[in-house]
Design a protein around this nucleic acid. Structure first.
Lengths: 134, 134
DNA sequence: TGGCTAGTTGACGTTTACGTCAACGTAATA
DNA sequence: TATTACGTTGACGTAAACGTCAACTAGCCA
């Protein structure tokens, strides 16, 4: 198989583990770890892992979660939430609850960021004032 | 000393470790740990710790940092940044740099939150559509 | 065919941020 | 004065999220 053929398929681009590693600046060890934690499920070509566009998006979500301080367990819930399993009424309701919980988390973080930003602004002003007096 | 006298001083209200523990819903163990990490420095009355308004604010900052996924090391930097040490020109410049770095971190987080919020909105819409069709 | 490159699977190590005792001190209270 | 509540200092334990080997495999290229 050539690189070109390996690089694309019906569903879109596919990636090797080092592709993802470089694109997202994360180690291959971490990527395999996420798989072992049930967050990624790449196909195999022999024993080698091949990541689909879906895996790519999932990884992006994991890393975004990390930047926000979410645990892998929380990100995994989010991922499972996005992956439609059984689509009965009860399941839908449950997902809507989780959506709401995620929103509340994000809202709290948003509020914390605003507070921090304000404090940074104040502190910078104080420092600039102090610098003028030198 | 009565509770009343213990509860206030020239600088404002003072707190015992369990006061803080209850107000912020954090264990006393954690509070002592933050001190051992050089983030809090309460006064002592005998061997007992007494926390000032400044300590209160610092603890609030630590916990806000935690909600945003900041490491204690990062929050400690922020705390030290707010505590004016030597106030020479070079020091001021350095603090301004740190302020800027903190802002950039927060900006990234803000952007991540927006993305997540959008995705949640989309997903909720999809689910509500699917529910209508049942 | 030998070596290079990329990938794989264990297995153990490490850092962060506390939790969880145990053993003790001290002060108010019954 | 004995108990209860609150606090203290070690010391060891633990969960999460990987890092770091070591030993192996499989494809490609001179």
């Amino acid at each position: 198989m050539t690189k070109e053929i390996l690089g694309h398929e019906a569903g879109g681009t596919i990636y090797t583990i080092s592709d993802l590693s470089q694109r997202f600046d994360v180690t291959t060890r971490a990527i395999r770890f996420y798989e072992s934690e049930g967050m990624l499920s790449p196909q195999r070509q022999g024993q080698k892992r091949l990541y689909s566009q879906r895996d790519y998006i999932t990884l992006k979500l994991i890393l975004r979660g990390k930047r926000l301080g979410w645990s892998l367990a929380q990100s995994r819930e989010l991922i499972q939430m996005y992956n439609p399993a059984k689509n009965n009424q009860a399941q839908y309701e449950k997902v809507l609850e989780m959506v709401q919980q995620s929103r509340e988390r994000l809202q709290q973080q948003l509020s914390d960021i605003e507070t921090m930003m304000d404090e940074l602004d104040n502190h910078e002003s104080q420092i600039r004032d102090a610098m003028k007096k030198i």
